[in-house]
Design a protein around this nucleic acid. Structure first.
Lengths: 214, 214
DNA sequence: TAGATTGTTAATCGATTAACAATC
DNA sequence: TAGATTGTTAATCGATTAACAATC
């Protein structure tokens, strides 16, 4: 919790976005940007951008704003994913395959080095560019590959059991797509992406506008 | 904003979870539950559960707790999705197909009544149980079907343009899977599910634990 | 009554906003 | 200098926590 100072998950998410935006500007040859320019692209306030950058110890100049190249490097160094970051995908159903393909084609910074599934038809094969192993081999492959981050794309029934197995194998962060709350040790970071909860939320507020906006 | 009182998106998300948990208990024949029992399943505090239920005007009894059946009905009525809720999916790539299949098999409350794509090979066909229309027909089909909620599973390049088209067609809530911030009118609800940002966040905090937890 | 639970109120915490001084 | 921007500080807002009274 104290490790990386007191950076909030939301700040990390925004920094990740800033970096992606900066990459585009850098390709276009832009050398410096003001906070309001970055803010406008990221759909946040300029003050928010300045606060985030101050949080990682990066400062700009009143006359020239922020250096695109140096800032991009600073964010990358701070996020600690300047090199390639290994991840595991557990559950090679539709969603698992879709995410694996997405990472390998669009986000090379994250490499899916192992996929796990219990379907005999999948085990031992390379699917979406990634070798699929039996679930039973998690305890062996996660430590040997040095994987610290896992994505859970499983049915509700097996999610908690596999999460426990992953934690025992040394996983320190889980991105959970199974629509069930997971019980994990406090030192394991958990991010939930429950599709049902998300669509229910959006549906609720889709209705909202019709109720009158007084 | 004022429409549904001052219910926060997080509250709606938790209510959706409570309802799903209650459905299981109801099948098991449980008639009443205490806040700490619901809390334990949902991985939140008992006070949080009570606050959420008070927010929708539902109250329990100190001796019997909450009635499972009545509470489930109350939440359903509040969320306004007791019947079937129509949604549209824009972009029938891997993710779009995966979500469509997921909704039709696992969450019948939400029915994907229209899918949109620009690929001639897909237009006019039924994919994952849903008819695929050309993007150009959004302005016609969304109003005629009375769709208020859309899911965006598109590449970055076309996300903003299609979002604008959807809003013009009457969409009031968007669940966005494209890894780009969208600029929308204030009365349209937006929920972002950027995979890159999520994995970056989890990776960052996966690293955290190793830095020492003092 | 006794005890566990519910709902209420005040206190705390964090994040955002607003006003200001410092910088090039 | 003048002006736009940066960083800093105090004020506000919301959500959570903690302490309490009310209920069955």
């Amino acid at each position: 919790m104290a490790g990386k100072g007191s950076i909030s998950p939301n700040t990390v998410e925004r920094l990740s976005l800033y970096r992606r935006l900066l990459e585009v500007w850098l390709e276009n040859g832009t050398t410096s940007l003001y906070s309001h320019q970055i803010a406008s692209m990221a759909c946040v306030t300029p003050a928010q951008v300045r606060r985030d950058l101050m949080a990682i110890g990066y400062s700009g100049s009143p006359s020239r704003g922020y250096s695109v190249k140096a800032l991009k490097k600073s964010i990358g160094r701070f996020l600690g994913t300047d090199g390639v970051w290994k991840i595991a995908i557990v559950g090679m159903g539709n969603l698992g395959r879709s995410l694996t393909t997405y990472f390998s084609t669009r986000v090379p910074r994250f490499r899916v080095v192992a996929a796990f599934d219990n379907d005999p038809a999948k085990i031992g094969r390379v699917i979406s560019g990634c070798m699929v192993y039996a679930n039973a081999r998690i305890g062996e492959i996660v430590p040997s590959e040095g994987i610290r981050t896992a994505v859970l794309t499983l049915p509700v029934e097996s999610a908690q059991v596999m999460a426990d197995t992953l934690v025992k194998a040394g996983i320190k962060g889980i991105l959970n797509y199974a629509p069930v709350p997971l019980r994990l040790p406090a030192d394991v970071f958990l991010e939930n992406r429950d599709v049902t909860a998300a669509i229910e939320k959006v549906a609720f507020f889709s209705n909202d506008a019709s109720e009158g906006k007084e």
